[in-house]
Design a protein around this nucleic acid. Structure first.
Lengths: 340, 340
DNA sequence: TATTATCGGTTAAACGTTTAACTAGAATTA
DNA sequence: TAATTCTAGTTAAACGTTTAACCGATAATA
């Protein structure tokens, strides 16, 4: 059987409480005693029982990680990576991450993840856009929540966000610097705050460069999902405007849809049309040509979320601090330099 | 605060033990009492505390799910889906799944997942090929193990396997039925038992059809990984044989590598070369033409694994039962019918 | 009728921690 | 010197279950 705190206490000639204080880095314990206890712990290969800890401390050591099914299953492993970052950070300290998916169209009385119902968690990280109904349901449990990559309008939450505005600017500026003027902004659910911000960045960059081409160049779309969305939006764009030379696709799935449309219509990238994406996911051999894009630090978002959550849990603070992670332009081969 | 078993017992006018027996479907409780208790539980929205349960019963309710980092991060979300299946099944009963990744080249003294060290799990599911060192390390903990999609040679484990042999045959037969004779088997780490089996299926199908083209048509490769592997193997193949009309690529990543090679060498699919894959992952718009393949039921593998594991835990059996999940031929557009 | 089983529970110990309250002795202060 | 504060721990209750052992009442058996 496993050794318990009792064994350690006995061997190290101290009380149970002392051992507990040592393992929790708390209390007033002398260097000498601490060392002795630690040594005994090593020798006995003692690991505190999570269950007993949880019972006594009313902390479970568990962090929930909620994703919509749609996000988890999508082909681009965007949120998988965010999760991995969270797992990584959690395992560095002493937390377990419980991954749970919820229905993408969560309704008021749908079942919540089991760890929530059983109150078997200390806090929860939510990745990506989720329905307000879910947030409302979670709020009732009065547990800390950190949201990644989404800003609900219902209320303020501590969150980890992408620097979408700057990303939108960076992408657009890159196109401008390559001599493009007729730059379209395509796709994405415009109702999503992140997409909105990227669009702002796009507009800002154009304004700064004194480029004004009217409104026909912005095509968004709330009707279709991911790739479909890009395909349909590109279709709408080209039925409307013929003189586009560059497209800023608002996320990676959209870019792929756009590429598909261009291919189907015999438009070459980058010779006929330049394309820049957002949300870099794994350089993918099959994407041809390699896509110039704005990279989002996915792992980092996960680790930041767990750190923030842990902080909130520990300090019982109620701030809704926001952390904005930096983005980065990755130049590949989908943008052509125009002769000016 | 949350209601506890005490509250329920008090309200329902029974002892604590009775409530416990009801929630665990054990013991001899009358219909009448059971109903009353259940009703009270509903009314008070009572959920047993996992920690207390774990402490008292010496069962954690937690199942580990171990993946190598390489498998988790690879672009094709194969194991993500297996995981989702596991999660789904676990949540139907009363288990939590703890996802952990280990280094792909796990060494003897590398750190094990934390839940293992803390013995904070009732059993573990391992998905995909892992180093023997990891298995050896886990074996020391004497906890039930179920392995998905891999057969270690060191010893027998209960496992969930793909019907690779039949898959290999099915794929090859399909090519034969479409008039192909010069059929190559390409790629994959031949040291992987699954790839080996697929190769057996391939050979069996050729034998049955009385096709014998010598050995030059089989190219495997332990040097490169996934897509690279397919690319390089195709290269070797075509440097060796010129008259190939069809290729059976031993997994999806390999197929993609092969496609890339063909593209780079101006060979059209399916007009010049027919191609069939294995391990269907999400129909991907960008794969052109759509790939005919052998589909593996990923979600099902996850659910089966959890069921099997749960069974082993409950009955404390030590069998190494194996479950083979069926595969399925998915016809798309990468195979051409030859005129015979 | 006396004995034994069965039914439907109850009692109470045990699980392994955390932590508030306490204490003995040493150091500091008045 | 006497009173006070610090230091480095200890004591013991509490956390919310499970489960082996027990028990009283009723039914079955000899």
């Amino acid at each position: 059987m496993n050794s318990t705190i009792k064994d350690v206490a006995y061997k190290a000639n101290v009380s149970i409480a002392t051992v507990s204080l040592v393992t929790n880095n708390g209390g007033r314990i002398s260097q000498e005693t601490r060392r002795r206890v630690l040594k005994t712990i090593k020798k006995l290969d003692y690991h505190p029982s999570r269950s007993a800890r949880g019972l006594a401390s009313r902390k479970t050591g568990k962090i929930g990680f909620i994703l919509t099914e749609e996000h988890f299953l999508r082909t681009e492993p965007f949120y998988s990576r965010v999760f991995l970052g969270a797992e990584f950070e959690a395992s560095k300290k002493d937390n377990y991450v419980l991954l749970a998916t919820v229905n993408s169209s969560f309704k008021k009385n749908d079942p919540l993840p089991r760890f929530v119902l059983e109150r078997n968690y200390d806090g929860v990280v939510i990745a990506g856009r989720v329905p307000d109904e879910l947030l409302n349901a979670l709020l009732k449990y009065k547990m800390p929540i950190v949201i990644i990559d989404y800003i609900p309008h219902m209320q303020d939450f501590p969150s980890i966000l992408i620097d979408n505005l700057r990303g939108g600017m960076l992408a657009t500026e890159y196109l401008i610097n390559n001599g493009h003027k007729n730059i379209a902004f395509v796709g994405g659910e415009i109702s999503h705050p992140s997409i909105m911000e990227r669009l702002q960045g796009y507009k800002l960059a154009l304004d700064r460069a004194n480029i004004n081409n009217g409104n026909g160049l912005v095509v968004t779309n709330d009707e279709y999902l991911s790739r479909q969305n890009g395909y349909k939006s590109a279709e709408i764009l080209f039925n409307r405007k013929k003189n586009v030379t560059a497209i800023f696709a608002s996320n990676n799935a959209t870019s792929i849809g756009v590429m598909q449309y261009l291919k189907d219509n015999n438009l070459n990238i980058p010779d006929d049309i330049s394309l820049i994406g957002f949300d870099d996911v794994e350089a993918d051999m099959l994407i041809d040509p390699p896509l110039t894009t704005i990279r989002v630090p996915k792992l980092e978002m996960g680790t930041e979320a767990v750190q923030l959550l842990r902080n909130i849990i520990k300090t019982e603070s109620t701030t809704s601090k926001k952390i904005i992670v930096p983005i980065e332009l990755i130049v590949r081969k989908s943008v052509k330099k125009l002769n000016i």
